[in-house]
């Protein structure tokens, strides 16, 4: 049996989940509003990260109705290293510290190197881009991301002629916080892209969100955002990028290949075996979620040419 009785995983899994979740809500509600207003804001506000809005990725240009409220975007996350519940990542955000941080670039490159996170932040000019994030679970958020095109980093390390793919890895929780690590899926979380996808200007090496450095629950200090693919492709808290000749193994694809493909392009025509992908629940400022039709490539038609001649029903 794979399930192991250990540490934090156990306490959260044995306690019925919604009681466990309510525990936090009870604590929150005990901190009555006036008291919460007196709390230092450092608990909520992160370090500012300045970036000029990219003219092509504004609400108006993208045709988005509005941003997802910051509070929702930072409290409803899939980041299994910090727990499998949607509010676990925010609750467990102190499990690791995103500073200091290094990220190593390896494999088929002429200039392999290890970046300190501060060096990496200075590699190119940061831009703010508003992209919709479409999760494979059929919900979406409209979020102002801050970062620069991954191509800046790729060009800096000079891939060799053999580099056909990149593979990017998240930290391994069993190394970073062994006593509190869960084993929801095999670590480290691994994702990858074909080189032309990685070089596409839309692919954003992301350092910030809502005008601040990424908070831990959003994948601090650096993550991918690949806006035309389901969210699970956009690996968080990256520690390593490996340039490879062969298609890398990716986490969800390895676990359930019938449900999660390598490409994972947003596609309303290809249902997940357990639910339809034709529409999505949009997390807006409304108390309720609003259903909206899902767009192919999440509305980023400019990437369609990357897949010409491919059967996207098979290569989902």
């Amino acid at each position: 049996m794979k399930y192991k009785f250990k540490s934090r995983t156990v306490s959260s899994e044995i306690t019925p989940q919604d009681i466990y979740h309510d525990r936090r809500r009870v604590v929150k509600s005990l901190m009555a509003l006036p008291a919460a207003a007196l709390l230092p804001t450092s608990a909520q506000a992160g370090t500012a990260l300045a970036a000029a809005p990219h003219p092509d990725y504004s609400l108006e240009k993208r045709g988005y109705d509005g941003l997802t409220p910051k509070k929702k975007a930072l409290s409803y996350n899939n980041f299994y290293e910090l727990g499998t519940g949607k509010d676990d990542p925010e609750f467990n955000k102190d499990l690791y510290s995103p500073e200091p941080w290094t990220i190593s670039i390896e494999g088929e490159v002429n200039k392999p190197r290890t970046f300190d996170i501060d060096q990496l932040r200075k590699l190119a000019t940061m831009e703010e881009r508003i992209y919709r994030l479409r999760c494979v679970e059929a919900w979406s958020m409209v979020v102002p991301w801050i970062g620069f095109s991954l191509s800046n980093l790729i060009n800096a390390v000079e891939p060799t002629g053999n580099a056909k793919y990149i593979n990017f890895l998240t930290f391994n929780p069993e190394e970073l916080f062994p006593d509190d690590a869960n084993r929801a899926i095999p670590w480290p979380y691994s994702e990858g892209l074909r080189m032309d996808e990685a070089m596409h200007p839309l692919t954003l090496l992301t350092f910030g969100i809502y005008g601040e450095q990424l908070p831990t629950q959003s994948g601090a200090p650096v993550r991918m955002i690949i806006p035309w693919k389901y969210g699970f492709k956009s690996g968080k808290a990256l520690t390593k990028i490996i340039f490879t000749e062969r298609k890398p193994h990716t986490s969800w694809n390895l676990l359930q290949p019938s449900e999660y493909g390598f490409y994972a392009n947003v596609n309303p025509e290809v249902p997940h075996p357990r639910w339809s992908q034709s529409s999505e629940k949009a997390l807006t400022s409304s108390l309720w979620v609003e259903r909206r039709p899902t767009e192919k490539f999440n509305g980023f038609d400019e990437v369609a040419s990357l897949y010409s001649g491919m059967d996207l029903n098979k290569l989902f």
Binding site: D18, R25, K71, K72, K86, L287, V289
Partner: peptide
């Protein structure tokens, strides 16, 4: 409790939240 949490705006994704709690 679930309804109160939603009406107070504490829940990012109420459909998911209610489905989970009522199922359990």
């Amino acid at each position: 409790v679930a309804a109160t949490n939603i009406l107070r705006g504490e829940v990012a994704e109420p459909a998911d939240y209610i489905t989970h709690i009522t199922g359990e």
